Amino acid sequence: MSAPDPTGTSQLPLLVVIDPAARLWDGESVRIARDVLSAGAPGVKVCLPESPEETERALVRRGSRRPVVVGDDTALLRAVRLLHRERELSDVALSVVPVGAEERVRLACGLGVPPDAVTAARTVLDGAPHRLGLLTDDSGGVVLGDLRIPDRPAGRRRSEPDGQEQRAGGERAGERAGQDAPTPSLQGLSGLAGLSRTRRSLSRSVRAVRAGRGMRGDVPVPPQRLRVEADGVLLADLDEPVREVSVKPAAGTHTGLAQVTVRPQAEGRSGPVLVKARAVTVSGPDFHYRADALVGGPVRVRTWTALAQAWSLMLPA
């Protein structure tokens, strides 16, 4: 039995925006989600955009319809950023049906959205809106999960145009690895065994490339000289390199705080610096950062501010 919805969110008609990447990745899950939503709610409008611009136009012109995103974390973030830019994020109960590779739906699932299409679609219909916190930056960006400096994985250092994640480099490298692999003989059992070993080796190589690692092991992330301030308090300065800075909305708080962790290059006995703050400013030489599924930068200064209960997500009641 679902919890009561005093806001009447469940009674609003739906606008189902199906991301084109989701249709390419798993058309069957998309069809299932569409069928469940169409059967469970009256007056469902389905939008099949072919570009981010079409997605934005559909969301802006949705009227009183409740938006439902069918896609991966990038599609979810695109919708959240648009609603934030339009100053409508706090007034909308957003829903998402995760469709994509496992590593590309971690944000949505980490927020509590069911990972399978059927359960997620039923949550759109029978779930309850949950108010969640987030981070905003001084360039209009939004962080729902966590922020890391340097960006992860190590080896992917390019900035992302228009907020889109750069995946082509790793995939092309994997394709080149496949093209350059030797073609073994298929004569006899020894040839088949050699082919099997080659395939396993190639698979490991491709996974290493896609994970941002070199062919000879992990690529070390060089330390960065950054100045980190939390609510005006200096946590790190340029004269002491840091290994990592992470910021995320603090769990279990309604006051709008962020959990800030600064890991110095040489932690010693003191270990990482852990604080909670409303605003965090990072400055220094050009640096990249990973905000949820997106990579930003290079920038020399950026400020992130925590907002409490800034948006609503439909989750299982």
Rank of each mutant, 00 (worst) to 15 (best):
T7N: 11
P13Y: 02
A22I: 06
L24S: 08
G27C: 03
E28P: 01
R31P: 01
R31I: 00
A33E: 00
A33S: 02
R34F: 01
A41N: 02
P42Q: 12
C47R: 11
C47M: 13
L48C: 06
E53Y: 01
E54Q: 13
V68I: 02
G71E: 13
R78M: 09
R85A: 08
E86F: 02
R87H: 08
S95N: 09
V97S: 04
V97G: 04
P98M: 07
E102H: 05
R104A: 03
C109H: 02
G110C: 01
D116C: 00
A121R: 01
L125F: 09
G133T: 03
V142W: 09
V142T: 15
G145Y: 10
D146H: 14
L147S: 05
R148P: 04
R152Y: 08
P153D: 10
A154G: 06
A154V: 10
R156N: 08
R157I: 00
R157T: 08
R158D: 08
S159R: 14
S159C: 02
E160A: 13
P161L: 10
G163F: 07
E165L: 06
R167W: 14
E171Q: 09
R172P: 00
G174H: 03
E175K: 12
E175W: 13
A181M: 10
P182I: 12
L186Y: 15
L189A: 13
L192Q: 12
G194H: 09
G194S: 06
T198G: 15
S201T: 02
S203I: 00
R204P: 03
V206G: 03
V209M: 03
R210T: 02
R210A: 00
V221M: 11
P223K: 10
R225V: 03
R227E: 15
G232C: 11
L235R: 05
V245G: 04
T253F: 01
T255P: 08
G256N: 05
G256Q: 13
A258M: 03
V260A: 09
R263M: 04
R263G: 01
A266R: 12
P272Q: 10
A277L: 07
T281I: 11
Y289L: 15
R290A: 11
D292G: 12
G296I: 10
V299L: 10
V301P: 11
W304Q: 11
T305C: 12
T305D: 06
A308T: 14
A308I: 14
Q309N: 15
A310Q: 13
L315Q: 04
L315G: 00
P316A: 09
P316G: 14
P316R: 10
